[in-house]
Simulated scan of single mutants.
Amino acid sequence: MRRTALGLGLAALTMAASAAPLDTYRDRYRVLVLSAPDAADAQLTDQRAALGPVREGIAERDLVVLEAVGSGAEARTLRAALGLPDDSFRAVLVGKDGGAKLTAAAPIPPQRLFSTVDAMPMRRAEMRGRP
Rank of each mutant, 00 (worst) to 15 (best):
R3A: 12
A5C: 01
L6V: 11
G7V: 10
L8G: 13
L8Y: 13
G9P: 08
G9K: 07
L10G: 06
A11C: 12
A11T: 14
L13T: 07
M15E: 14
A16M: 10
A17L: 10
S18I: 07
A20D: 14
A20Q: 14
P21S: 09
P21H: 09
D23R: 12
T24I: 08
R26H: 10
D27H: 10
R28S: 14
R28H: 11
R28G: 09
R28L: 14
Y29I: 00
R30K: 07
R30D: 06
V31D: 02
V31M: 05
L32G: 01
V33I: 06
S35D: 03
A36P: 05
P37A: 06
D38V: 03
D38S: 14
A42G: 09
L44T: 02
L44N: 04
T45R: 15
D46E: 14
D46A: 15
A49R: 14
L51W: 04
L51M: 12
G52L: 13
G52Y: 08
P53Q: 03
P53N: 04
V54C: 09
R55W: 00
R55A: 13
R55E: 08
E56L: 11
G57R: 02
I58G: 02
E60D: 12
D62G: 05
L63W: 00
V64K: 02
L66R: 01
L66C: 11
V69H: 09
V69A: 04
G70H: 10
E74A: 15
T77P: 04
T77R: 15
L78H: 04
L78A: 07
R79A: 04
L82S: 01
L84T: 03
L84P: 02
D87H: 11
F89W: 03
F89L: 05
F89C: 06
R90S: 15
A91K: 00
V92I: 10
L93V: 07
L93Y: 06
V94M: 04
D97F: 06
G98L: 00
A100V: 10
A100P: 09
T103Y: 00
P107N: 04
V117Q: 01
V117D: 01
D118Y: 02
M120S: 02
P121C: 07
P121A: 10
P121D: 06
M122A: 09
R123T: 04
R124A: 08
R124H: 03
A125I: 09
E126W: 06
M127V: 11
P131V: 10
